[in-house]
Each structure stands twice: as C-alpha cells, then as structure tokens.
C-alpha cells in the first residue's frame, strides 16, 4: 500500500502543478494552452542543463526553481510576441497557435538536447532513503511531494489572500469591467502566463531525477493535464487539486494491479465524471 500511495502522491503532485497552470491560464485568457506539456518538458531539459555545471545537491534542489522561472519567461515571450496578436479572433486561432508551438518546441528540444532520452537520478542517490512502515523510500520522493504541497499552499495564498490574486480573480470573472476599474489587463495576461508556465516548468524540473525526459512526454503530459482539468472543472484550482489526487492515486494503484489498462482507467474515470457532472467536479464555467 505505502509504495503505491507515495508513487500516487508523486504523480498527483506533478499533475497538480501542470493542471493548475493550465487552469489558471484558461481562467484568465480563456485559452487552453496546448503547449503546456512542452513547457513541462522544457523545465526538465533546463534542469538537466543546470545540473551539468556541478554535482552540488543544492544546485539540484534549486534547479526546478530556475527551470520554472526560465519556462515562465519563455511563456511570457510567447504570450506577448505571438498569442496576444490573435486575441479577439476566436478561440480556434488561439488554440492553434499554442498547438503549433508544440512542434516548434519538439525541434528546439532535438537541437538543444538531442533525440535520446535524458535522465539524472544523482540527487536521489545523494539524499539516500528513509524507511516508512518498513518500506525504503528515496528521501527525494518525499521532498518532491512536500515541495509540491507547499507550492499548492503558496498558490492558494497568492490567489485568495493577496492584491495580485484579487486582480487575477477579478480579471477571470470579467475582463472588461476589471479594466474599467484601472487594471491593465494585458499585464495580468503576461503575469498569468508566467505563473502557468512557471508551474509547468517547475514540475518538470522536479521530475528530472524521477523520470528524466524524452520527446513525446510533452504530449503525454498535456493529455493528462487536460484530463485532470476536465475532471476537476475548467478554471477551478480546487478542482485541479482534487482531480490530481484522484487520478494520481488511481493510476498508481492501477499500475500495480491492472498494468495493461492503467491509463485506460484514468480515461474511464474522466468519462464517468463527465456523464454524471458534465462541467467537472468543481466546474461552473461552461460558456
């Protein structure tokens, strides 16, 4: 039981980081960022490059933050340089633009980091293991879960207890009215894209020691992120959290019990949720 729970929580942590970014970006820009999985993958690659400089554990632990910040910066550049040019032309074009980015990223990855999968579990070995109820666990895995949980709390605090969060929430309710109360909505867009891509890149950076990276992981992660967002309800952070835990744990137990159809179980859960509650567990936004 314990290993499945820990693995499920790791998976849930990453899903949450990815899905929270997707759902925040959707809440503000009403765009589902199809290149979100690519930002996740970018995070892993950046973390990999950073940790080439030295084997210092501190650098390993800091790398997800740097990877997140850089992924966020790339996201900002994408939003300002490309995406903002098609605002108001309908979601088809916004969606396609983010879809086109997936392919640009694929070749950027191939040029920058080659076509072979990369991995580097050094930090896992350096941190060693701990024993939980008789099971030996890499300490890094617990670190990952803890840091993701802390980030979830920080995110909640940011959105619900700060002035910036108030502005973000107001903008997601009503852009027009919010802009007439002095908010420069374009800045909120940039900030949101940074935040969303930071979360994806950060999640990627955390996973370098666990899974590494390969081309194709971008689309896998995008699809799982979409499933979490659909199950949780589009635009709902709470929904993203609950759905990540649900899907993370289900998948983890699925892998150990029904390895042949573990991924299918995830989709079946999604279909079941949608038949019972079409807008997702915590969703209200369906226009």
């Amino acid at each position: 039981m314990i290993p499945q729970i820990i693995n499920g929580l790791i998976f849930a942590s990453i899903l949450f980081l990815v899905a929270a970014g997707l759902t925040i970006i959707f809440g503000i820009l009403r765009v589902v960022n199809f290149s979100h999985g690519s930002f996740y993958l970018l995070g892993i690659y950046i973390a990999y490059s950073i940790t080439r400089f030295s084997q210092d554990p501190v650098l390993y632990l800091a790398s997800p933050f740097i990877a997140g910040a850089l992924a966020g910066a790339v996201g900002m550049a994408f939003e300002r340089g490309l995406l903002s040019r098609v605002y108001g032309r309908g979601e088809l074009f916004e969606l396609l633009l983010t879809y086109g980015m997936i392919f640009v990223f694929i070749d950027v990855f191939r040029i920058g980091w080659g076509t072979m999968p990369i991995s580097d579990p050094t930090i896992t070995f350096k941190l060693g293991t701990v024993s939980i109820a008789g099971y030996l666990m890499p300490l890094y895995n617990l670190y990952l879960i803890t840091i993701a949980a802390i980030l979830a709390l920080v995110l909640w605090y940011l959105l619900f207890k700060t002035r910036v969060g108030m502005i973000i929430r107001a903008t997601s309710f009503d852009k027009e009215v919010t802009s007439s109360f002095g908010v420069n909505v374009n800045r909120v867009y940039v900030l949101t894209f940074f935040l969303g891509c930071f979360l994806a890149g950060f999640g990627g950076g955390l996973m370098l020691p666990v899974t590494g990276a390969w081309i194709g992981l971008d689309i896998d992660m995008l699809i799982l992120g979409l499933v979490v967002v659909v199950v949780g309800g589009l635009g709902s952070i709470k929904g993203a959290l609950v759905a990540s835990l649900l899907i993370g744990l289900v998948r983890s137990f699925g892998i150990s019990m029904f390895p042949a159809i573990e991924l299918a179980i995830v989709y079946v859960i999604m279909i079941a949720v949608l038949i019972v509650k079409p807008s997702g567990l915590f969703g209200g936004v369906e226009h």
């Binding site: 959707f26 009403r30 589902v32 979601e91 969606l95 699809i223 979409l226 499933v227 967002v229 659909v230 589009l234 042949a260 159809i261 573990e262 991924l263 299918a264 989709y267 079946v268 999604m270 279909i271 949608l274 079409p278 369906e286 226009h287």
Partner: peptide, 22 residues
C-alpha cells in the same frame, strides 16, 4: 467549444491507450 475539443482529445486518448496497452 473548448470542452468539446478537450473531450475529443481525451476520448481519442482512451482508444490510443487501449491500442497501445492491449
């Protein structure tokens, strides 16, 4: 709209996963 689009992705992924794993 977007919900439709995401559902089509997810359902296609279900069949993809089945073809892949079975």
């Amino acid at each position: 709209r977007i919900y439709f689009t995401m559902l089509t992705i997810a359902l296609a992924s279900l069949f993809y996963a089945l073809a892949h794993k079975l």
